[in-house]
Structures are given as C-alpha cells and as structure tokens.
C-alpha cells in the first residue's frame, strides 16, 4: 500500500486503548480503512463502538488516559509525493497542528463545545484562517464572510458580529462547518453532526454537506449511528462493533447484501416506512468493553455463530468480493454462509 493516488487517507491496524483502574478498554483495536478522494466514508455503530475515538485519533487528539498503541495513518495530500505519516507526529507537535484544521478538519455533535462562547463568529473564523493561511485580517474577514454565505447562513454580515449563543442549533452547526472549512481541508471529519438536531434541520445540514463536498472537492468521514443518514451520505461504509470494523463495503452492498450478522441484525432492527411487520431486536446486550477476550465480540448475541470457533479465536478479515471485507468465520475461504 504505497502512495496510491486513489486514497487521500489510509489507516492501518490502529489500536487505541484506555487505561482504567479496573482494566484496559480497547476502544479501537485493529482498525483499517481508506478514504477515497472526494468521497464519503461512513463509520456506523452503536454507542461505545469506538467510532468517535477513531475520529479523534486520526487527528492525533488523545483523550485522557488513552494511548495509541499501534497503527499507521498516512495522509496523501494531492501534489505531494511522500505521504504524511500522522502516526509519527506527537499529539502536541507543531506538525500535527499544521494538519489539524488545515488539511483535516472536524465538526462535532454539539457545536457549543467547540465554539468559544466569548468570541464572535467572525473572530473565531478569522482566527482559524490566520492560523493556517498567510492572510492578513482584511482578507481573512472576506473569506469568513464568504464561508458563511457558502454554508447558507442568512444575513451573514449580521451573523459575523454575533456570539454562538445567539444562534439556533442548526445555525451553530453551520457556523462550525464554516469555520472547519475555512482553510479548504482535504478531509472533513463529521462526528454525529446532526444527531442533536431536528429532522428538518438535519435535512438542511445533510444537503449543505453534499453541496460543499462537490464545490470544495473534499473527502468526508461521516460518523453516525443512524442507518438512514448513512444511506444518504456515504459512498463507503465501515460498520464498527466494540472497537473493531466488522464489515467494510460500499453503501449499496451494505444495504442490499450485508454479510456480517451484526450488520444484518442492525438493519433488521430499524423501523422502516414501507414495512409493517415486527422489528427484529438483537438479543442480549453489548458486553462491558473492559478486558474482553480475543474472540468474536458479537458471538454471544449472534444467531449464526459457530460453537467452538467464534468463541475460541478471533475471526480474521475475509474479502468476500471486490472491496467487501467481512470479519466473520462464516466467510472463511471466500464462501458465503451456505456454501
């Protein structure tokens, strides 16, 4: 996997562990994925599956008590021969700060936590711009105004002078997006950006992101627990369960030919408009993620598990078809569950 021009980002065998008093929590354990240029990678999973930690680790943001034990993160900015090795950068180094907000940007579920309450929107966007781009204040202001227009904020001149608390939830999310995109990043990481919003506002933001992706030619890593949102935004999808990617494929295959039992159950558990029958719940519950044995973590809840195998060793990743990877013993030897 050398500097392949198709991918803008490659993550190889990433492990991030949290060290607690009562044991080791492997929040991310052996995650692999690639992000294609100008495409959207969706990461989907339930709470505690490690999707958010994965996103933070890409920017080398280490949460308290956590450590990235292993893994390689290569960023391939266009026009550069050598990929940037993000995994070798110290979380507090100058190098990684040059990447954050500039080459890779991030937006969060709750914009209030990442917008400063004591500065106006204008100052915050300007700061982001002057930090990474060699622009003077006048130019920065112009870009800030342009960005607000781009993210569809009405009356942008007025909004620039306002503070985050004066904006509604949807507007805040737009303002944060404007700030994140002000340096034309190659990748935007969106960590559940619409979870706290109403459906109509969510629709607005999803629409906006699709437009911006086209006009700014960027890649997006979209993290969510909502299968509906994934179907709308993603090109490729990683399904995560307890720190591991269990299935990795393109979005159409995911919804029409899901292979991992967890993905299949997840799809059967969501109510659909055109289906009146009963929902199929997944039995049991997500186990405590501390000090788990090295076996298939989904084994206790799986109805297709192989006794003596799934609970004995960890399933490797099988490639069942081009670009479709499944971490499940059912696909050993490249065959499906039925032969």
């Amino acid at each position: 996997m050398e500097n392949n021009n198709e991918n803008i980002l490659q993550v190889q065998n990433m492990h991030v562990y949290f060290y607690h008093d009562h044991g080791v929590l492997k929040a991310v354990s052996g995650v692999n994925f690639e992000v294609d240029k100008q495409k959207t990678l969706g990461i989907v999973g339930e709470s505690g599956c490690g999707k958010s930690v994965t996103a933070h680790s890409l920017l080398r943001i280490m949460l308290p008590r956590s450590k990235m034990e292993q893994g390689k993160i290569y960023l391939n900015p266009p026009g550069q021969k050598e990929p940037l090795k993000l995994h070798q950068m110290h979380p507090k180094s100058k190098n990684i700060r040059r990447v954050r907000g500039n080459l890779i940007s991030m937006i969060f579920q709750e914009p209030m936590t990442s917008l400063s309450p004591v500065h106006t929107i204008e100052n915050q966007i300007k700061e982001a711009i002057t930090l990474h781009r060699e622009k003077d204040k006048k130019e920065a202001q112009k870009i800030a105004l342009e960005m607000l227009k781009k993210v569809g904020i009405s009356d942008p001149e007025q909004r620039l002078t306002e503070y985050p608390h004066q904006l509604s939830g949807g507007m805040r999310q737009r303002a944060m997006t404007a700030m994140a995109l002000s340096c034309n990043p190659y990748i935007l990481i969106a960590d559940e950006p619409t979870t706290a919003l109403d459906v109509t506002v969510q629709a607005q933001i999803l629409d906006l992101m699709a437009d911006l992706q086209k006009s700014l030619a960027m890649s997006i890593i979209y993290i969510t627990h909502d299968m509906g949102v994934i179907a709308e935004v993603a090109d490729e999808v990683c399904v995560m369960y307890l720190g591991k990617v269990v299935e990795y494929t393109d979005v159409d295959t995911l919804f029409y030919n899901a292979q991992h039992p967890y993905t299949q159950s997840l799809l059967n558990a969501i109510p659909r408009m055109d289906y009146e029958g009963r929902l199929e719940a997944i039995k049991g519950r997500v186990p405590e993620p501390v000090d788990l044995p090295e076996v298939c973590h989904f084994y206790p809840r799986c109805d297709q598990s192989i006794e003596g195998k799934c609970n004995q060793e960890e399933p490797p990743v099988f490639q069942t078809e081009e670009g479709h990877r499944v971490k499940c013993f059912l696909y050993e030897g490249g065959s499906g569950p039925d032969g």
Binding site: A203, E232, V251, M273
Partner: peptide
C-alpha cells in the same frame, strides 16, 4: 421528506 431513508437507492 426530511426523514432519512435507510436505502441508498
């Protein structure tokens, strides 16, 4: 119309 539909097609 705003409901996200879990179907990419």
């Amino acid at each position: 119309s705003a409901i996200p539909v879990p179907d990419p097609r």
